[in-house]
Design a protein around this nucleic acid. Structure first.
Length: 529
RNA sequence: GCCGACAUAGCUCAACUGGUUAGAGCGAGGGAUUCAUAAGCCCUAGGUUGGUGGUUCGAGUCCACCUGUCGGCACCA
């Protein structure tokens, strides 16, 4: 089977922020997808990072008596350390202040200037001198053409700016979207973009007065490339090397939140189409697609600074220490706002999902199997030689679970993937109920049949653990350790790649292998009273 | 304000182009069990499908209006 390449990204996060559930969510979804594709055997590149060149970054630095770079270094480190601590498997970490990024962006913009798709123009708008920023016409009207901060009149100001010819590409982008060459999902977002694209105008891509923080427009050092253009290019700059270019050519999947869809679904593909026309950039192609999830709300309320109810690092750590990192991943992945509606991060809901899916279903089922194996077969996987009527369709269940799981994950349906694995585990519980091995075991003559039953249970659990690995890798690796399975080692030995399809074939569990008992994988959570 | 989507059992969601008694998971209630983390398994949900009016032999499924939620127009994962 030829190696497929898979390239997935998160947005690069605004470096002035402190990491919170939103950053963690997008990164977790990307991590699950990256792990899934590696498990499948794909050659994966997973990229996340921080966006550093905003004017407010240099403002924040100045307030603290730091250089923008020092301030950015500090904050970038917080993101980097957080993701490392949460065991994200990103292959690199973008920092837009790094030379490798800046040099490429400069080259791209130079090429676009040369081709004429970026041109010098004039921007005119209402300018707030005190804030040193433009306000939109509608805002200006709303404010009565006075600064909302100091009440001084806004001034009409004209300024030289560089523009990108978005207008000349809107048709090509729309065509690519309609043809499925560049997918915008969830589907409901597609129409939003197509409608807006029809009226898209050229967009300014530079500004002045940034005090040297940012990437200068080539040939015009007074102008700085707008931070969001700078940021969008990260997906390309970090793989624009001879070794990494194949990842780009495989087509990137840009995971984002809904608020930045316009940039990613309209401006970004248009920029790439423009760049592709430049000499030396013929290899540039459109992303495979962009996927825009919605937001988390907190305990039923929108998260906002004024309410101070962000699910922040302290709260995230509370969940990890109380329930485990995998439990948090499971909740985010299966209950998250992947669709067009927001999802609620609520403690009661977290506990419910944790107890139902992880403690009562997965953890308990594993305990039943390991306990019976130890009690009746001294902890050794028995042979499935004896016939058991109810076992006939059993291998099918695992096959179906794999098929459903694969279909879900390919469609970025993490809840569906979780449900497929849960279904397989529930079928084990059902099977134990139907065959009642614990009753049969009371008569030694039945032990061969008990052996077959327990073999099937353990075998199905083995497959379920493979399906669950992308979401709850650490607990699944614990299952593998207890069952003497070496998938983790095999993956490590092959550059992180697994063989999901082969490993999920029924009947690979070796009779005689040890199944160790141990502490509950997910202890049931009892709320303190 | 303008444009667009959606509004189904306590919660989260299903029901292809309109057609038999509107389904599932969670939660809740009941039952038979005991290998297991008082977990698992089985049974039970009678919700005027947001409201009003209309089209049709027949409408969650089409139309109009109303109410509400969300999204886009207006830089926040």
């Amino acid at each position: 089977m030829p190696t497929e390449r898979y390239y997935v990204t998160t947005p690069i996060y605004y470096v002035n922020d402190r990491p919170h559930i939103g950053h963690l969510y997008t990164t977790t979804v990307a991590d699950v997808l990256a792990r899934y594709h590696r498990l499948k055997g794909d050659d994966v590149f997973f990229l996340t990072g921080v966006d550093e060149h905003a004017a407010k970054v240099s403002d924040a630095a100045a307030e603290r008596g730091l250089t923008p770079q020092q301030w950015a270094d500090q904050n970038a480190a917080v993101f980097q350390e957080t993701f490392a601590r949460l065991q994200m498997t990103n292959n690199d970490f973008v920092r837009t202040s790094q030379e490798r990024h800046k040099a490429k962006v400069t080259a791209y913009v130079a090429a676009l200037l040369k081709s004429g798709d970026v041109y010098a123009g004039e921007y005119e708008g209402w300018y707030d001198a005190g804030q040193e920023e433009y306000v939109t016409d509608s805002k200006a009207q709303e404010y009565g053409f006075k600064s909302p901060i100091n009440g001084k009149p806004l001034v009409r100001k004209k300024e030289k700016n560089y523009f990108f010819k978005l207008e000349s590409y809107r048709e090509a982008v729309a065509t690519a979207i309609r043809a499925g060459e560049f997918s915008v999902r969830p589907e409901a977002r597609c129409n939003e973009i197509l409608n807006r694209l029809a009226e898209a105008k050229d967009v300014p891509i530079s500004r002045t007065g940034t005090g040297g923080w940012g990437i200068p427009v080539p040939g015009d050092p007074d102008q700085t490339i707008y931070v969001w253009i700078d940021a969008l290019f990260n997906y390309l700059t970090y793989v624009d090397t001879p070794e990494r270019r194949p990842y780009w050519e495989a087509g990137v999947t840009n995971l984002i939140a809904k608020d930045i869809l316009w940039f990613h679904a309209a401006i970004w593909p248009a920029l790439l189409l423009a760049l592709k026309k430049c000499p030396g950039y013929e290899w540039v192609r459109l992303p495979r697609g962009v996927y825009a999830h919605s937001f988390w709300i907190s305990e039923g309320q929108k998260m906002s600074k004024s309410l101070g109810n962000f699910v922040d690092l302290a709260r995230i750590d509370h969940y990890i220490s109380t329930f485990s990192l995998d439990a948090l991943r499971y909740f985010l992945a299966t209950q998250g706002p992947l669709g067009t509606t927001d999802a609620d991060f609520a403690e009661a809901k977290f506990i419910e999902v944790y107890n139902t899916d992880l403690a009562n279903t997965l953890g308990n089922c594993f305990s039943r199997i390991s306990n019976m194996t130890n009690r009746y077969f001294a902890g050794r996987v028995p042979s499935p030689a004896a016939a058991v009527a109810e076992s006939q369709p059993y291998g099918h269940g695992a096959e179906e679970a794999l098929a459903a799981f694969t279909k879900a994950l390919e469609g970025i349906d993490l809840a569906g993937g979780g449900a497929a694995a849960q279904g397989l585990i529930r079928s084990i519980d059902n099977y134990i109920e139907q065959t009642a091995p614990f009753k049969l075991a009371k008569d030694a003559a039945n032990l061969p049949r008990v052996g077959t039953i327990l073999y099937h249970c353990a075998e199905a659990m083995r497959i379920a653990s493979l399906l669950l690995w992308p979401v709850i890798p650490h607990k699944c690796e614990e299952i593998w350790r207890r069952m003497g399975l070496d998938y983790a080692q095999q993956m490590q030995a092959s550059a992180g790649r697994g063989q999901l399809a082969q490993w999920c074939q029924w009947g690979q569990l070796q009779p005689g292998a040890t199944i160790a008992q141990g502490d509950p994988l997910f202890p049931r959570y009892q709320a303190p009273k």
